[in-house]
Design a protein around this nucleic acid. Structure first.
Lengths: 120, 120
DNA sequence: ATAACATGTGAACAGTCATTCATATGTTTG
DNA sequence: CAAACATATGAATGACTGTTCACATGTTAT
C-alpha cells in the first residue's frame, strides 16, 4: 500500500480538480469493482468459454459436455461449479444426471460483445 | 488429455445427433476462443477495472492514475501494458509524460453489460 | 442389497499473475 | 553536461488457478 502523503505528483491533477471530482464520484464502490472483476475472471478461461458456447445451442448434461469438448468429466464438473457460482449457468437435476443451461441472456450478450472486439 | 476412444458415454448425445452437429458447427475455432478468453482475462482484475473506470471520464497520465487510485507508478505502468496489449487503452506521448485513454467504445459497453449482470 | 452409473469434491501439482523493488530509458530544465 | 522527472521494465516473491487423480455421494436397475 502506498503512502497516503502524495509523494508522487506530476502536477496535472492540480490543474483539473473537476476531473478528479468526476472520476471519484463516478467510480463505483470497491466491492462492486471487485465483483465485476470476479465476473470477468469467470469468462477468462477458454475451457469455460467452450462450455458456454456449447450451452448456446442446447441444454446439456455433464457427460455430454465432456464428450463434446474432449474434456474429463471431473474438469467439466469443476468448471461448471465456477460458472454456477458466477450465476452464468443453472442446473436441472433429472434422476442421476444433471442438465446445465445458460442462466440468462447476459451471457450471450457479453460473449458477443467480446467477440466483436476480437474481430474488429 | 482424455482418450480419443469415447470411454465416457451417458447415452444422451446419441439421441440428439443434430444437436451435436449444431454445437460443433457453431463453435468458433480454438484460436478465437483462446483470444476471447484472453480478452476477458484482461478485465478480470479489479486494479485494471479501476484504471478503465478512471479513463471513462478523462484522458490521464500514468502519474495521475497512480495518485487517483492510490497505486504505485510501477503497478499502474505494468497494468497499462496489459491493457494496451489487449487494445483496451491507447497511449499519447507528449514530452516526458504519456496520456492514456480508452481505445474504443467496446470497453464501456462490456463493462456496462458486466455491471448489469452483477446488479440484477 | 449390490452393481453400474452420473456427478461432485478434496488434495496435490504445475503453471500463471499482480505487486514490489531496483534500475533503465528517455525527456526537459538549469 | 548534469540533475530532475515521467515512464518502462526485469527479476523475485507470494498468491491464485486449472487439471488430474482418487474417491465420495447419490441415483437407477437387476
Amino acid at each position: 500500500m502506498p503512502e497516503s502523503n502524495d509523494v508522487e505528483r506530476c502536477g496535472f491533477l492540480f490543474v483539473h480538480r473537476d476531473t478528479v471530482r468526476q472520476v471519484t464520484e463516478q467510480m463505483p464502490e470497491d466491492e462492486k469493482l471487485y465483483d465485476l472483476a470476479e465476473l470477468f475472471k469467470v469468462f477468462g478461461d477458454s475451457t469455460r468459454i467452450k462450455i458456454l458456447y456449447a450451452l448456446f445451442e442446447a441444454e446439456l448434461c455433464v457427460c455430454d459436455i465432456a464428450q463434446l469438448l474432449g474434456l474429463t468429466q471431473s474438469a467439466v464438473s469443476h468448471q461448471l461449479r465456477v460458472l454456477k457460482s458466477g450465476r452464468l449457468v443453472k442446473p436441472r437435476k433429472e434422476g442421476k444426471t444433471v442438465f446445465y443451461s445458460l442462466a440468462d441472456e447476459h451471457v450471450r450478450t457479453l460473449i458477443a460483445q467480446g467477440m466483436e472486439h476480437i474481430e474488429e
